[in-house]
Computed example of a mutant assay.
Amino acid sequence: MASIHSTNSSRRLICCIGTGGTIASEPTAGGLAPTRQDTFFRRIRSHPSLTSPTSFDDSNVSFSSPVHAELVGKNVRYPRLVTPELDDQGLSVEYEILDLDRHLDSSEMTPAEWNTIASLVYENWDKYDGFIILSGTDTLAYTAAILSFLFHSAGKPIMVTGAQIPLSRPRSDGWTNLLDSLFVTGTLDLAGVGIVFNHQVLQGARATKTSPNLFGAFTTPCVPPLINLNVKITYDTALSLPPRSSSPPPPLIPLLTTPTVLSIHIYPGMTGDLLEAQIATLPTCKAVIISAYGSGNLPINPESGVLQSLKRMVDKEILVVVISQCAIPNVYPLYTQGRTLLSIGVLPGYDLMHEAAFAKLIWLVSRPDLSFKEKQELFETPIVGEMSV
């Protein structure tokens, strides 16, 4: 697939949005923490694989040299950098780091932060040729999934990356993850949302975090990686991100920031009363993810009360979706349980990962322009290749 490589000799300009996370963590009295400071930029500025000497007018720039950052609202934009040559055509990439006003551990990520990230991408769409979101790994796949829906059909690449070991520590994988992200967004002719990690590009709405220890922290269990960035770069022939285009992003949808999507894990002994007790604690609930057994099986015997409880949820116009607890999921209405659930308006999650199901539901319930029936229909419609129906 040679055509995926850029034939444009001019440098592309990439915006790297820093949200914190492991990649930006520094030693503190309480341990490693993603506190916002210019040390993160200094590290990148000093790394020969990420920054060419041509980035600076002064060839004596060092780690301790002053940093002339610019305040953009509450956020900080650091001086523009240029990579060394990244491919055999001699292409290099210009990039700027735009740091959010507050760095956070990704376990603290909420739809409010997603709104902030999406707004920055949207507002800066015409200024840059692509975007990299620097994220903590715990919710990185959720962030990639929601951006996939918010920026579906947009004609530029948005890659999400991070690290298992901070840049501040020996053996950090963040260097190669960032370098690969710059290569993908800056030299390849593709668009869409992906995850760049451990020399792979994964489909943004298909990924899940499978290890807190392995450098290959993310996988897409139901589809192969889009790109393998090995000695020889290889591309999946069945799946691909769309090519770059002039297509603008769709109108930005502000996500509801009150809790709207409840996730419930089915286990032996689950009853309808237990399900409804959880719903009762969340009066703003608009959607429920049921993580069921196998191919979407639930206890539907009358004594458990589960089926009756799910029907009451649907009658209240709560989107109810069943996904599989299996590591390689596939929910399909083959057995009696599945067909019975369909008959009361419960939606099958097919091979959706939890991250994509959660993101798609938040995206849907945040759209007042859609009726309940339209939301149900759209949930069962693949939007960004997030599921196979």
Rank of each mutant, 00 (worst) to 15 (best):
S291K: 09
P268Q: 11
K316S: 14
K311G: 04
Q308V: 14
D273V: 15
V306T: 07
I323L: 05
L310V: 05
G272L: 05
G269I: 08
G294W: 00
G305Q: 08
Q325Y: 07
S295Q: 13
A287S: 08
A292M: 09
A280T: 13
L310C: 00
C326Y: 05
I328H: 14
A280L: 15
L274S: 11
I279V: 14
V322N: 03
A292P: 01
G296T: 02
K311I: 03
S309H: 04
P268H: 11
G305R: 08
R312I: 08
T281N: 14
I289N: 04
I279L: 15
L274Y: 09
L307R: 06
P302I: 10
K316Q: 15
L307V: 07
G269S: 10
G305N: 10
P283H: 06
L274D: 06
I290V: 13
I289V: 15
S295Y: 03
C285N: 04
M270W: 07
T271V: 09
R312V: 12
S304M: 07
A280S: 14
R312F: 06
T271R: 09
Q278G: 05
T284F: 03
P302L: 10
L319V: 06
S295P: 02
Q325K: 12
H265T: 14
L307Q: 05
G269Q: 06
I300G: 02
Q278L: 13
P302Q: 11
V288I: 11
A280W: 12
A287C: 06
S291C: 13
P268E: 11
A292W: 01
Q278D: 14
I300R: 02
I266R: 04
A277L: 11
I266G: 05
G305I: 08
E317L: 05
I323N: 00
G296C: 08
V314N: 01
Q308P: 07
E317S: 13
I266V: 15
G272K: 08
G294N: 09
G296I: 01
A277M: 10
A292L: 07
S309E: 02
C326L: 14
